[in-house]
């Protein structure tokens, strides 16, 4: 929702000003207008940072209290793909900064080329993300109830022998989960939490379908007998896999999903600014939209700079 309102934030800049062309009627000077836009943009970036802080908080709380889940589950992630993605985003951030400079210096050709390059970087990032998601969907490494791994950690999707068995496993797990609205595996990876406006109506996930109900401790032994402390031995289920590993994937998909949505939105803005720069609207005296879209793109890169070590480089 915030994304398209953002475009209005930038477009307000060039109202039908009497004197300088791109000056809105209610601003005194282009300088005042530029400062207002930058200030408004930074406030918006601040709200984005706070929105992602919710996810970083969930990550921090669950990592602090269940470190074994993160140690176990991060091995499913492919660090090389993550590193390549980071490099791709840093390069596209570089070309974006360069594009802003080109706009300020009025180098139209360079501006258009660099914006195109940045857009390409965005596509590259999403492409790699798609590969990673595809691997996870395929192997049942899904959040919450659908978590039904068919591959041992460390096997980064190249374990083909698991492939066919994986599908069978997944289908049954899908059937057990019994909630019709989960995207069937193999289909285009449903962005984890796409814009809620389109989310399916509140179909109640049936309570006990295949889920282990909270088994209360045996009533017979007097309560004092039960060990309250945080005993790690109890942590590990039969297969050495700590319980609730799906929490890692819940947080993984929430973070990278929301970040992915913001990458998509950023690419839409870059495309929009690219179209306007092809029309030659930007030059040294008016380049605010390029600058603001550049700030947004750098923020998206900024968030990935923190996501990458937190999710991929767990030690």
């Amino acid at each position: 929702m915030a994304e398209e309102t953002l475009t209005t934030a930038q477009s307000h800049g060039h109202g039908h000003g009497e004197h300088p062309p791109h000056l809105a009627h209610h601003f005194e000077s282009p300088g005042q207008q530029f400062d207002a836009c930058k200030f408004g943009m930074w406030i918006f970036l601040c709200t984005e940072v706070l929105m992602f802080s919710g996810l970083f908080c969930a990550y921090a709380v669950y990592r602090a209290n269940h470190p074994e889940i993160f140690l176990y589950a991060h091995k499913y992630l492919d660090t090389n793909l993550g590193a390549i993605n980071t490099a791709v985003l840093i390069c596209s951030s570089f070309t974006m900064a360069w594009a802003v400079r080109a706009a300020q210096k009025g180098q139209q050709g360079l501006l258009i080329g660099l914006l195109a390059l940045t857009l390409l970087g965005g596509f590259g990032f999403l492409g790699i993300k798609y590969i990673e998601y595809e691997h996870k969907f395929h192997k049942g490494l899904l959040p919450g109830a659908q978590y039904n791994p068919t591959v041992t950690p460390g096997d980064h999707g190249n374990g083909d022998k698991h492939a066919e068995m994986g599908d069978h496993e997944l289908i049954t797990s899908e059937h057990d989960a019994g909630n019709a609205h989960t995207a069937p595996p193999g289909a285009a990876p449903a962005r984890h939490d796409e814009e809620p406006a389109v989310a399916p109506t509140g179909v109640k996930p049936t309570e006990q379908t295949g889920l282990e109900k909270t088994t209360l401790p045996q009533a017979a032994p007097p309560p004092a007998g039960r060990s309250m402390e945080h005993d790690h031995a109890h942590e590990h289920g039969m297969t050495g896999r700590p319980n609730n590993v799906h929490l890692f994937f819940g947080i993984y998909f929430a973070m990278t999903g929301l970040h992915g949505i913001h990458v998509l939105a950023g690419m839409a803005f870059i495309a929009w600014v690219l179209k306007r720069s092809i029309a030659g609207e930007f030059g040294p005296e008016y380049f605010t939209p390029v600058d603001l879209v550049g700030l947004y793109w750098h923020l998206v890169d900024l968030i990935w700079i923190f996501l990458f070590p937190l999710l991929y480089l767990i030690h």
């Binding site: 049936t206 309570e207 006990q208 379908t209 109900k213 088994t215 209360l216 045996q218 009533a219 017979a220």
Partner: peptide
């Protein structure tokens, strides 16, 4: 309770094992 469910009912009964 999850094993045998009468047709037309949902499997929502909690287990009373141990209780």
């Amino acid at each position: 309770p999850q094993k045998l469910i009468v047709a037309g009912y949902e499997a929502v009964m909690p287990t009373y094992a141990g209780r």
